[in-house]
Simulated scan of single mutants.
Amino acid sequence: MNIKNYKELRSAISLMKQEQRQLKTIIHQDIQSIKEELTPSHLFKDLATTLKNSDVVTPAIDSSIGLAAGILTKKAITGKSKSIIRNIAGNLVEAGVSKFVYDHPDIIKKPISFLFKKLFHPKKKQSIQAIA
């Protein structure tokens, strides 16, 4: 752009200010969308969606669920007991529960997915006017 007089200069400055306002608005919108995408709930939803749609990760999730269920069951049975018999029984139950849950992961996945839906997709409360 070749500016020759004061009027063209003012016009060019005005155009640049307008462009600057537009760019600020676009940058502000981008920052807001990034903030929304980086919230923990949004990240968790994205992770859950990715894991749900992934065929590769499913066996790893199934075995993790099985191990966690086995460990929790063992802790529930043995607690802080120092009894050898109780610890052996806890180990056997842990192995059995882990194997069972690994073989039948839907038994655990359905209640967990129901819980996640309730937590992350709560129903909207009806207003008093809508009821009346």
Results as ranks from 00 to 15, higher is better:
residue 7 K to N: 15
residue 7 K to V: 13
residue 7 K to H: 10
residue 7 K to Y: 11
residue 9 L to W: 09
residue 10 R to L: 15
residue 11 S to H: 13
residue 12 A to T: 03
residue 13 I to V: 10
residue 13 I to W: 11
residue 14 S to W: 08
residue 16 M to K: 13
residue 16 M to D: 12
residue 17 K to V: 08
residue 18 Q to T: 14
residue 19 E to W: 05
residue 23 L to D: 10
residue 24 K to G: 09
residue 26 I to H: 13
residue 26 I to Y: 09
residue 27 I to G: 01
residue 33 S to N: 09
residue 34 I to H: 07
residue 34 I to M: 11
residue 35 K to T: 03
residue 36 E to H: 00
residue 38 L to K: 03
residue 40 P to A: 12
residue 41 S to L: 06
residue 42 H to A: 07
residue 44 F to E: 07
residue 44 F to R: 04
residue 44 F to W: 07
residue 45 K to N: 07
residue 46 D to T: 04
residue 48 A to P: 03
residue 49 T to E: 12
residue 49 T to L: 10
residue 51 L to M: 14
residue 54 S to I: 06
residue 56 V to P: 08
residue 59 P to N: 13
residue 60 A to M: 15
residue 62 D to Q: 12
residue 63 S to V: 11
residue 65 I to E: 01
residue 65 I to Y: 01
residue 68 A to Q: 07
residue 68 A to F: 03
residue 71 I to C: 06
residue 71 I to R: 11
residue 72 L to M: 14
residue 72 L to N: 13
residue 74 K to I: 09
residue 75 K to H: 13
residue 75 K to F: 13
residue 76 A to P: 01
residue 76 A to H: 11
residue 76 A to Q: 12
residue 76 A to L: 15
residue 81 S to V: 01
residue 82 K to D: 14
residue 84 I to Y: 10
residue 85 I to F: 12
residue 86 R to W: 08
residue 86 R to M: 12
residue 87 N to C: 03
residue 87 N to D: 13
residue 88 I to E: 11
residue 89 A to K: 04
residue 89 A to D: 04
residue 90 G to Q: 08
residue 93 V to N: 07
residue 95 A to T: 15
residue 97 V to R: 06
residue 98 S to E: 14
residue 98 S to G: 05
residue 99 K to D: 11
residue 99 K to I: 14
residue 102 Y to E: 14
residue 104 H to N: 12
residue 105 P to I: 05
residue 110 K to D: 08
residue 110 K to H: 03
residue 111 P to S: 03
residue 113 S to M: 03
residue 116 F to Q: 02
residue 116 F to T: 03
residue 119 L to E: 01
residue 119 L to Y: 00
residue 121 H to G: 00
residue 122 P to I: 02
residue 125 K to S: 10
residue 125 K to C: 02
residue 125 K to R: 10
residue 130 A to H: 14
residue 131 I to N: 14
